[in-house]
Structure formats: structure tokens, C-alpha cells
């Protein structure tokens, strides 16, 4: 079965999921521009890495399952991979920023909490 033979409801559902996910990711990227300080901006990309990613991947899994005529859950692995890696990247980046800000005595640096 190819994409043209897809039932109409499935096509609309896939498109709705992909568009919703893309809008969430775009909102996250917009936050990167609109929010004022670095610590506020770090929150923005998580929108794309959580809900945006989940919506787009479920759309992809639904579409590929319909096309191939069996359950294709492979794209879920991208989701698991992103869920595990996003905290590591953001945590390291936030710590590096905190270290630099404290070292340089910037305003808005996080409060000291021992050597940690």
C-alpha cells in the first residue's frame, strides 16, 4: 500500500499530529528569541524535545504503520533516545553557565550552594 491509498481520516490525523508537533517546536524556538535571560531561554527548547517530538513521532509511527500494513514502532526509539539525552545536555549547559556567571560575578547568577 502506498501513501495515496491511505484512508482519509488517517491522512488528516497524521497531518494534524505533524502540524501540532511542528507548532510546539516552533514556539520553543520562538522562546529562544523572546525570553530575556539565559536561564529563561534554557527552558524553551525543551518544548520541542518533549511534546513536539512526541507528537511528530506518533504521526510518523502512525503513517509508517498504515503504509506498511503492520505495527512500526521504530521511531519510538528516537523518542527514548531524546528523553534520555536532553536532561544531560541541558544540565551540563546550565551548570557551565552557572559556573561562568559565578566566576565572573554576573548579576542574575545562581546562588552559591557549597562546592557541589
Amino acid at each position: 500500500m502506498n501513501a495515496a491509498a491511505l484512508p482519509a481520516w488517517a491522512a488528516w490525523l497524521v497531518v494534524a499530529l505533524a502540524l501540532a508537533g511542528a507548532s510546539v517546536s516552533l514556539t520553543g524556538a520562538l522562546g529562544l528569541i523572546r525570553l530575556r535571560s539565559f536561564y529563561e531561554r534554557v527552558h524553551a527548547p525543551t518544548l520541542g524535545a518533549t511534546l513536539g517530538m512526541a507528537l511528530i513521532l506518533s504521526g510518523s509511527m502512525l503513517l509508517l504503520s498504515m503504509i506498511e500494513g503492520r505495527l512500526v514502532l521504530r521511531d519510538g526509539l528516537i523518542g527514548i533516545f531524546l528523553t534520555v539525552t536532553t536532561p544531560v545536555t541541558l544540565l551540563l549547559l546550565a551548570r557551565a553557565a552557572a559556573y561562568r556567571d559565578r566566576h565572573e560575578g554576573q548579576a542574575g547568577a545562581p546562588p552559591e550552594m557549597g562546592d557541589g
Binding site: 501513501a3 495515496a4 491509498a5 491511505l6 484512508p7 482519509a8 491522512a11 488528516w12 497524521v14 497531518v15 494534524a16 505533524a18 502540524l19 508537533g21 511542528a22 507548532s23 517546536s25 516552533l26 520553543g28 524556538a29 520562538l30 529562544l32 528569541i33 531561554r41 527548547p45 520541542g48 511528530i56 503513517l63
Partner: peptide
């Protein structure tokens, strides 16, 4: 259905490319 998929997914792609442009700006 093919046109719905093509246009809808193309629009989603465009939005993601716009998000990439915003990230590049930052």
C-alpha cells in the same frame, strides 16, 4: 489524501525550518 499529506507535511516542514532559522539567529 495524497495532496493532504503532501501539503500538510510540507507546511510542518516549513515551520520546522523556520524554527531552525530562529535557532541559528540565537
Amino acid at each position: 489524501t495524497a495532496a493532504v499529506l503532501d501539503w500538510g507535511l510540507g507546511l510542518a516542514q516549513g515551520m520546522l525550518v523556520l524554527a531552525m532559522a530562529l535557532a541559528t539567529w540565537r
